[in-house]
């Protein structure tokens, strides 16, 4: 089955937690488990940014994490798509003021797809990944 041309190959996602509350984390993991099962399309979480096509970033980036986020971003091979998952990575959300945060994420690294919600539902996360696939296709066509 090939529902869209974008799903003609496996898409690997690296999940990077930058100080999120774990709410997004469990929804991301819930999204890869049998009820939603994106692995039938080849979408899976990988353990290293060097293997990833997509960076899924959550959290409001505390000071200790900023450098690590930049390093992981640099380690991900091009073309890559960055997904910002969760409201606190977009605008701070409930952590709108703090002395120890360097966020939001797009203040640190460029973001392509935003998934709102605190946390977003697994369906929304999958929808965001599909958006990322589309963007990745465009990038690859553009880069070629």
């Amino acid at each position: 089955m090939k529902p869209t041309p974008a799903l003609n190959r496996s898409l690997w996602v690296f999940h990077l937690n930058t100080g999120s509350c774990n709410g997004c984390e469990i929804e991301i993991v819930a999204a890869i488990t049998p009820r939603y099962d994106p692995e039938r399309f080849g979408i899976k979480l990988v353990g290293s940014p060097r293997h990833a096509d997509v960076l899924m970033v959550t959290g409001p980036v505390p000071k200790k994490m900023k450098e690590r986020v930049l390093r992981v971003y640099a380690q991900t091979p091009d073309p890559k798509v960055v997904i910002c998952c969760g409201t606190c990575g977009e605008s701070g959300g409930v952590y709108y003021d703090s002395y120890n945060l360097d966020g939001p994420i797009d203040d640190v690294i460029p973001v392509d797809v935003y998934i709102s919600g605190c946390p977003p539902r697994p369906e929304a996360i999958l929808h965001g990944v599909v958006k990322a696939i589309e963007k990745l296709e465009r990038l690859e066509r553009g880069a070629a």
Binding site: T18, G23, P62, K64, V94, S98, L101
Partner: peptide, 25 residues
């Protein structure tokens, strides 16, 4: 400490009805 967001400090600037939503997170 990699995710130290200073929640307790934030809480001292908000009222308890707001903090319950912060504590959720």
């Amino acid at each position: 400490g990699q995710t130290h967001r200073g929640i307790e400090w934030m809480g001292m600037r908000r009222n308890p009805a707001q903090i319950v939503h912060l504590t959720d997170r």
